[in-house]
Design a binder for these strands. Sequence first.
DNA 1: GTTTATTCTGGGAGCGTTCCCAGAAGTGCC
DNA 2: GGCACTTCTGGGAACGCTCCCAGAATAAAC
Lengths: 340, 340
Amino acid sequence: MTARRAAAARATINDVAAVAGVSRGTVSRVLNAEAYVSEAARSAVMDAISKVGYVRNSAARNLATRQSHAVGLVVHEPHSLFLEDPNIGSILLGINSALSDADYQLVSLVIDSERDSHRVAEYLSGGFVDGVIIVSARAHDPIAKVVAELGIAAAFVGHPVDVEGIPYVGIDNFSAAKAITTRLKETGRRRIGMIAAGLDRDSGQDRMAGFRAALGDAFDPELVVTTPLYAHTSGIDGMRLLLDRAPDVDGVFAASDAMAAGVLDVLREVGRSVPGDVGVVGFDDSAWATRAQPPLSTVHQPAGQLGRRAAESVLAQLRGETVDTAGTFLETAIVWRDSA
Amino acid sequence: MTARRAAAARATINDVAAVAGVSRGTVSRVLNAEAYVSEAARSAVMDAISKVGYVRNSAARNLATRQSHAVGLVVHEPHSLFLEDPNIGSILLGINSALSDADYQLVSLVIDSERDSHRVAEYLSGGFVDGVIIVSARAHDPIAKVVAELGIAAAFVGHPVDVEGIPYVGIDNFSAAKAITTRLKETGRRRIGMIAAGLDRDSGQDRMAGFRAALGDAFDPELVVTTPLYAHTSGIDGMRLLLDRAPDVDGVFAASDAMAAGVLDVLREVGRSVPGDVGVVGFDDSAWATRAQPPLSTVHQPAGQLGRRAAESVLAQLRGETVDTAGTFLETAIVWRDSA
DNA sequence: GTTTATTCTGGGAGCGTTCCCAGAAGTGCC
DNA sequence: GGCACTTCTGGGAACGCTCCCAGAATAAAC
């Protein structure tokens, strides 16, 4: 099998113009939906387009407009969370959906961390993309810094930890944590504990604050176990500690599904039934939730919307609009399964 | 925050030529590593490039060469497995790595299934990409058909079910299944059963054949339970059936990690310890494997390599080379954890 | 009917490359 | 020194679009 050029000779705007009996300029105006085109000319051009099978040559357009009509999805390997984030697929689809609605392309910018940030800057200022979306950046992400300096149209999905001036889209962790804790409380639990994590970020703090707000007077600091990571093992260690402190605990809110899965493991180990003896809820609605036994009640993140909104922010910046550099917080939903 | 053009005035090839004291043509030759450039000219151009901070304008290049220098990753939503495949992130990274080595861009082609295949064909022949990579296509995938008809440079990652003439990259299911079964046998198991699935595909058949080959004379058809799907519930049902048939089973090879997780659930239910009473192995090294209790011994797929090889095949086609339209099979590795 | 504003159209110029041809410079051989 | 190669260089033309200006056609106002 050898390579073959897809189409021997593709129709150009000139072919369309000739068939429609108008000029190149008029075809271009129709293509770009500009004003001042007569209805007769417009329909003649439309007919001609489908007749000759015209498809716009984006390279020529990009060259003439000096824009790439592309938005990059920055994946900064291996330091990014790209491979770990369970919602990444949906986020990507959401981004793409918004972009293609606006006739923009999504290009993947996988940046190898071996190279320095100078290379990254060159890459971004190289005109390959008009804007950039950064998913789950970590603290001190060099790309975030470069983007901020260059003033490139950009948006984050997820919390940027130490970057100012770039809009981001996230979820309302406080309300979500409060809502699911309330729901857990309503199942009749009296002694509800929490396995908290990531308190060095506002997302982690907000989840804990939401938990506290939901319990009100019933809140007992003794029942909150803090761990540094959102990991499965943190959930195991955290739950053991919690059981030590409060053997009568009958409800647990884990700040991530991975930790909740760890909680489940410990409860099984010590012979407590879920949700019979103890009700457990998680956070994320990741793969952990459905694969756990029993499946976890958890907080669902609107991953697709997260991506879409970030893309729309970049698009707005590209149109020259002023966008809010503060965060946009999306509503979450509670998914009630069998663990509580 | 308003949009800002990244660079006020980017350096062009003419600026480089002026600084280097040579002509446009010579700069172009240096840029494209062509023959017939004197060493003096080459180094003068190189110096000038870094001096003026030149970055090639890909739109102009694409226009002049009539190639996009981009390869598309087709994601055919919602029918594709894009969101489900646990290895998708690594595959994507592997593809990108090979592509960027060859100075190609990866662009995401998310195709909405609401539109017809005519639109897909237009998309692919529209010159947006020079080639295309299709991940985990399902049977009767319309894109696969269009690609085959158009003769576009393409490659599959994963088994195409009903498409001929397009190269694909997969793993050697037979050897992998044989190897892990042998390994299981070597732990001293005497009665090893299998939960097979997907026998309507060669991947499923190969896994079963590998299992059989590993056992040799010890193979007992009675100990093979067949299910249609690779799902978790299939694993549960399959294991119950296997225990009915052979209560003395002391080893199980499940054709997927999801099924192996189901096997684990059943064994726990009936009070058999793993790996004490029964050794269990899976296939895929997906998230199920690490999240199972105990973590599964399984077959690891070289996801990054799968992507890289597919990309390299497309690149070879683009260079006009003849590539083998049969499948390329990559070696797998056994990951030995705690379940056997 | 004339003037003025508005709507519409054609086509030249330019975007930054690559391609290719013509010719200059260098090398080797008789 | 003359001739035939080979190596190297410059620059015109083209790629297919958008931008923009000048002017034609039409509509509105006097």
